[in-house]
Design a binder for these strands. Structure first.
Lengths: 209, 209
DNA sequence: GTGCAAAAATGCACTTAGTGTAAAGATGTG
DNA sequence: CACATCTTTACACTAAGTGCATTTTTGCAC
């Protein structure tokens, strides 16, 4: 503990806390009032800041909610970066995706998913979060593979892996709603494994024997 | 002349024309003034309708521009639907993607890509268009495969194919800008083929010898 | 053509998003 | 404590987006 790992002055910490408070307030409003029934002013009030301050941190409601999704997708990224460099990238990506099925990680993202799934405009922030995650995987993989990496392969692979993550989550969600019980999460995990397995198989054989 | 091929009454046709006029006006404004330097009122004026009418057709500028992307992604969808039902889905998808490299199709989408690539908020409409296309591929594939289809496989595959399309387009764009010359389009086409090839190969061997 | 009903376009008023700016408040430094 | 810097806030303003009443267009029957 003691001095942080990052050069965080008190100011940095306060800013991070404010940012987080605002994002959490946005989620709270979404939870209690539902899509479209609250304003930025409501969020600011709940977070205990002025309306103007909200806009100092986020460009809008979607942006604030996307930061929540990012927070948890970030966890998966972390896993990716921790994998040994010699490991095939696809394998690392699979391991990272599995981190999504961790209860602590899945819970908030599943809730966000359920709260936003009925809305076109809020569905966007999910979309954006996944896309952002794709970019970060690409960056991480590029860093690992060095300058000689094939950009096309990198982007196609990262995009495909994320697509599998999205597919697994959406099928899981259709089947189980926001059920976060251990059995349900096991199903989610299985879907993730299956999807990435099919990907690694080129979607060739329906039953990979 | 005479009665239309689709059961479109005159009213439907007029509506479609207005919708199109508005979308085109939005593109024209984007072209001439650039991201963020024009308003909905400008678009409405250029399209020759009132501000209010704009909002009768679209929810906002992004929505209007996304409809342009949709118009051309639709062309690829068409190709998919035309493929024989016995063909492997992945193969059909590849054929459909190749339709994007057709000059008539690529030109508008490439322009939109170049006009929106510098903007976060407008990049969203691209994102949304691709996502919409994914949904339609899923629907088309589901229809082809009947009720027995594996939803997870369907969604993972469609998402991956689209990811390959996005990857090919973004790499191409990074390399060639909005160059639409035949050679440049050949490169684009090659990237599409390569990306889907890697996908069909499970991203296994860098040189699939 | 004339009249009529349905649909589309418009004008207007209103709430909310989002931003520039300047002043007030908090924080780190010597 | 004094000072420079960063953060929050208040205020004012433009533009987005929506509800509603009204006017204009359109399709259809006579």
């Amino acid at each position: 503990m003691s001095t942080a790992t990052t050069p965080s002055s008190r100011r940095e910490l306060n800013k991070a806390a404010t940012r987080r408070a605002i994002a959490d307030a946005a989620l709270a409003q979404l939870r209690s009032k539902g899509e479209g029934n609250f304003t930025v002013e409501d969020i600011a009030a709940e977070a205990g800041v002025s309306r103007r301050t909200f806009f100092n941190y986020f460009t809008g409601v979607e942006s604030a909610l996307a930061s929540l999704a990012d927070r948890f997708l970030e966890h998966a990224l972390e896993q990716f970066r921790l994998r040994p460099a010699e490991e095939p990238v696809l394998e690392s990506a699979r391991a990272a995706l599995l981190a999504l099925a961790d209860p602590m990680t899945a819970a908030p993202i599943a809730e966000l998913f359920s709260l936003t799934s009925s809305s076109q405009s809020l569905g966007r922030c999910e979309l954006e979060a996944w896309d952002h995650c794709t970019d970060q995987i690409i960056a991480a993989a590029r860093e690992r593979l060095g300058a000689g990496a094939d950009e096309l392969q990198l982007r196609a692979m990262a995009g495909s892996v994320i697509a599998c993550g999205k597919a697994a989550m959406s099928v899981w969600f259709d089947e189980r709603g926001a059920d976060l019980s251990p059995e349900s999460l096991a199903v989610f995990r299985e879907h993730l494994v299956t999807a990435v397995g099919m990907l690694a198989n080129g979607f060739a054989a329906p039953q990979p024997s």
